[in-house]
Amino acid sequence: MADMIRPVAPPNLPSLVQAAFNKARVTGDVTYYPTQVAVLTPRSIPVSIPVSIPFQLRFSPALAHKPKAPKPKEPNAKPFNPFENPSPAMLIADLPPSHRLVLNKFAVVPEHFILVTRDVKPQTHVLEKGDIAATFACIQAYHADGRELFAFFNSGPHSGASQPHRHLQLLPVERMKDGLEDVENGGQWRVLAEKLTESTQGLPFQVFTTGMRPDMSAEERHSSYIELYRRAVEAALPDIEVSGEGEAKISYNLAITSSSMALCPRTAEGTMIKNKSGESIGVVSLNGTVLAGTALVKNEAEWDALRENPDMLLDVLKGIGLPP
């Protein structure tokens, strides 16, 4: 196989993203949904376990009214694809040879942006070497600027995936911390994937992890991803033959930071929670940001119930993946 052209992100990527986001907010091309935030630390995790999981919970009532993508006017027309030909207002930069960077149109975290393939490729397929290399190029551009990025990928019907065109999502960690300085235990939160090692006892779902080094080649990083994916498939479907390409065998979330990679096989997108009276009040759905240690709710009953009983969050987490 011929050597892959190594993607290089613009060295001023953080300022490019910030400028594009601020401009798009002013013009209305991006909608930012402000949130309230709390940090929950479920008490039922044994103290003797080295992994603690302070979870960031955000509440955005306006997000419940987010507009839906337009439906095709003709019965056989293709659904609207926001990534195929992004408008100039949404485009941050091209990332040759095969990707581009665009803004997330509906942002809960400021400066949330997205790495998309130029060609339309399936979100449900195993990631290619170029996908991982382009993602890490963005992470390195932030790291070189003294900042950190949290990258995540949702694949499959139980993962929280919403667009069929292949894309990975990128969140500046400093913007994920917005508002935490004003809440109890806010200083305890940090990206969960950064805290995980091969010893992940204490988590209520299985996660497979490995370290990332700055000097790794694109081949080594992709091989690390494929190995995590293989282990996850074997855990979920022991008798299935695993291939490193084509349609993925399971739903899963992937997280990548400058120092870690984590993959979580998923069995459900979310779970129902109940109030003190035992009444069902809503389904808490989680995507790849679960590997950052964050959750988002859109109605006040869920927000109140989880803050009143943080242990309820464990039940949600137990319901989305494979038991440890």
Rank of each mutant, 00 (worst) to 15 (best):
F106V: 04
V108H: 01
L127C: 10
F113W: 11
D119F: 09
K129F: 04
V126Q: 08
A107K: 00
H125Y: 13
V120Y: 06
T124P: 00
F136Q: 14
V109E: 01
T124Y: 03
R118V: 13
L115K: 01
V120F: 02
K121I: 06
H112A: 01
A134L: 00
D131N: 14
V109M: 03
I114Q: 02
I132N: 10
Q123W: 06
H112K: 01
Q123F: 07
A137H: 12
A133V: 05
V102D: 04
V109C: 07
K121E: 14
T124C: 01
K105S: 13
A137W: 09
V102Y: 08
A137T: 05
T124W: 02
D119A: 15
N104W: 03
E128L: 14
V102C: 08
I132Y: 10
P110A: 04
E111M: 04
P122C: 10
V126S: 08
F106S: 12
V126A: 11
A107G: 01
R118C: 11
R118S: 11
K121W: 05
Q123V: 06
D131K: 07
K121V: 11
K121A: 13
V109S: 01
F113T: 02
V102K: 07
H125R: 04
P110T: 05
K105D: 05
F106E: 04
L103M: 07
V109R: 02
R118F: 05
H125C: 12
L127V: 07
A107S: 15
I114D: 07
L127N: 07
R118G: 04
K129T: 14
K121P: 09
K121Q: 14
R118T: 12
A137S: 15
P110E: 02
F113Y: 10
E111V: 00
F136E: 14
V108E: 03
T117H: 11
F136M: 15
K129D: 09
D119P: 08
R118N: 15
R118K: 15
F106I: 10
E111Q: 13
F113S: 03
A137P: 14
V120Q: 09
K129Y: 05
A134D: 04
T124G: 11
K121C: 10
D119V: 09
D119C: 06
H125G: 07
V102P: 09
V102M: 11
V116L: 03
F106R: 09
P122W: 03
T135G: 13
P122E: 08
A133Q: 02
T124I: 04
V108G: 07
H112T: 05
I132F: 10
V116I: 12
N104L: 05
L115S: 01
A133W: 00
L127G: 03
A107T: 09
V126W: 03
E128C: 11
K105E: 12
T124N: 10
G130C: 13
V108N: 08
K129N: 08
D119S: 15
P110K: 02
E128H: 08
R118I: 14
L127T: 00
H112D: 00
L115F: 06
P110G: 02
I132H: 12
L103K: 05
D119K: 15
A137I: 10
L127H: 06
A133S: 12
V108L: 13
I132K: 12
A134G: 12
T117K: 12
R118P: 04
V108C: 08
E128N: 11
F136H: 15
R118E: 13
